[in-house]
Nucleic acid binder design. Structure first.
Length: 482
RNA sequence: GGCCCCGUGGUCAAGAGGCCUAAGACAUCGCCCUUUCACGGCGGUAACUCGGGUUCGAAUCCCGACGGGGUCACCA
């Protein structure tokens, strides 16, 4: 059997990480079975249309490498792949269900339903559509339609019996029909199908064999099965995925700025790291291996190893993984990606970006943290002289007061301001002075950086700063000590 | 509230009745390397939600409690 999976997002304008993971898994499963991965846009809610939203979906999926074999922009044998463009395909199936008694026309207005619902709830009951229009005669239906009364088509849900199905990750599921099904609307007043209906029709028409979606659909699956069966169609294999959480009690949310793919890319996470990490929330290869490229994931992925308990998206670990990916980047690629971040604080400062990049690559976890780490290169921070003290390096303020005046003329002498020269000259002097390396280098670095930790040692920082700035800062620090 | 799902360290997780004195990774702590930091190396702290069963034996099976999540739309 040819495996066909799909990713069917609704165009809201953003790609939720949970969605990216669902798409990832659907893609991986299709690819490892030489099957097809289909993209379908579910935009049956016309009120929610967002300009440019489908482009966000395309861009995100492509950036992640999740290329689809059939979709709105590239077509395919089952098109169109945008539900609003398929509007006319749904009604005939709904009518077929009406004929077979699995559905019926409903002329109740929203207000009427609301009234009855309120009455039932006031009496302490639980509301469910009361099949008010179920027994309308063909003549009554025709008359109401002719009178222009808006209508919907509702599913005639069974009121007894149970429905069972087997889910790949959650196992055998059984629901009592009376409890889990209701006469949901199939065709809305505006003529559009509801999500539930369109989903079933399209999944069948597009030959989807494996349905991957969030576990929130676990309890509504019986309705889908009822529809499949009523239409005489084969029910697909279900693979419900555990929720991706922010913490134990919250999902990733828009409000906290941690839900969307773009939130992370904007912060300077690498797509490869994000995809790699995301694959591991809810699935693991059964070995200790954690690093995978997309093709490697295709190889290693196994739907039977998908977890059934919700997983917390640990940004901490993502940052670590991101730093690992950054460390392994091609230096040129790193320089290119880091440059805009360097520019944020160093634009026009004439700093050797290439050298800076070498120094920063192993110290970058996410790109957005670069500016704060190199801001001192742009401007000398106002620091507390107490940081001249370092027990292990045998340094303190008085040591600095001795060392800095010694260093100044030595540095002044250096005409060719290269890192190597600065290193050689200073190290030679340290030997002559018979001082401990740290007791000279610690004060030197502090005096020109104003902070205890810097991306690079005294020589690297001095080089990056340039001769005149280095000397200027050192003199200012000396003054500060006096 | 009804129904459904889930429950191994702070987090991701291995684990499918004896191999568990419970892996590994992130985080955290300490040590080493080192002109700081980072990288890297080594080591430490830290978990089977609780209560009943079943069994010679349970993290693994059953029941219950508790906790968390989901779902009950002409939204998807």
């Amino acid at each position: 059997m040819q495996v066909r999976t799909r990713f069917a997002p609704s165009p809201t304008g953003f790609m939720h990480l949970g969605g990216v993971r669902t798409a990832l898994y659907a893609y991986l499963y299709a690819k490892q079975n030489n099957g097809s991965f289909i993209l379908r846009i579910e935009d049956t809610d016309q009120e929610r249309f967002v300009e440019g939203a489908t482009e966000v979906i395309y861009d995100t999926l492509r950036a992640c490498g999740l290329n689809w074999d059939e979709g709105p922009d590239i077509g395919g044998p089952c098109g169109p792949y945008i539900q609003s463009e398929r509007k006319s395909t749904y009604l005939p199936y709904a009518e077929q269900l009406v004929k077979s008694g699995h559905a019926y026309y409903c002329f109740c207005s929203k207000e009427e339903i609301e009234e009855r619902r309120a009455a039932v709830e006031a009496a302490g009951g639980t509301w469910k559509y009361d099949k008010h229009c179920l027994h309308l005669s063909p003549e009554e239906i025709a008359a109401k339609k002719a009178a222009g009364i808006p209508w919907t088509i509702r599913m005639n849900a069974p009121t007894d019996g149970e429905t069972s199905y087997s889910d790949v990750v959650f196992g055998d599921m059984t629901f009592k029909n009376a409890e889990s099904m209701d006469d949901m609307v199939l065709i809305k007043q505006d003529g559009m199908p509801t999500y539930n209906f369109a989903n079933v029709i399209d999944d069948h028409l597009m030959g989807i064999t494996h349905v991957m979606r969030g576990m929130e659909y676990l309890s509504s699956t019986p309705r889908y099965n009822y529809l499949y069966t009523a239409l005489g169609w084969e029910i697909p294999t279900y693979i419900h995925l555990p929720t991706v959480m922010r913490d134990a009690t919250h999902k990733l949310s828009k409000r906290d700025g941690d839900a969307y793919y773009s939130d992370y890319i904007d912060k300077g996470f690498l797509t490869e790291a994000l995809v790699n990490y995301l694959a591991l929330v809810g699935w693991n290869p059964g070995t200790d291996r954690e690093f995978f490229t997309l093709p490697e994931l295709v190889e290693a992925f196994d739907i039977h190893r998908i977890n059934n308990s919700p997983g917390i998206f640990d940004v901490n670990k993502l940052e670590w993984m991101n730093s690992q990916y950054i460390a392994k980047m091609d230096p040129e690629a790193y320089l290119a990606m880091a440059t805009p971040w360097f520019d944020k604080v160093l634009a026009g400062k004439n700093v050797d970006y290439r050298r800076l990049a070498e120094l920063m690559q192993s110290r970058t976890d996410i790109f957005s943290r670069i500016p704060e780490k190199i801001a001192f290169l742009a401007e000398m921070p106002d620091y507390d002289p107490a940081i001249f003290f370092n027990k292990k390096q045998k340094s303190d303020e008085s040591v600095a007061k001795e060392v800095l005046p010694l260093l100044l003329p030595v540095l002044e002498e250096i005409s060719d301001w290269t890192e190597q020269n600065i290193h050689d000259v200073v190290m030679e002097k340290i030997q002559q002075w018979e001082r401990k390396t740290g007791s000279v280098l610690w004060p030197m670095r502090i005096s020109i950086s104003g902070q205890e930790s810097t991306p690079g040692g005294a020589f690297e920082i001095a080089y990056l700063l340039g001769k005149s700035e280095t000397l200027k800062r050192m003199q200012a620090s000396l003054k500060k000590l006096a």
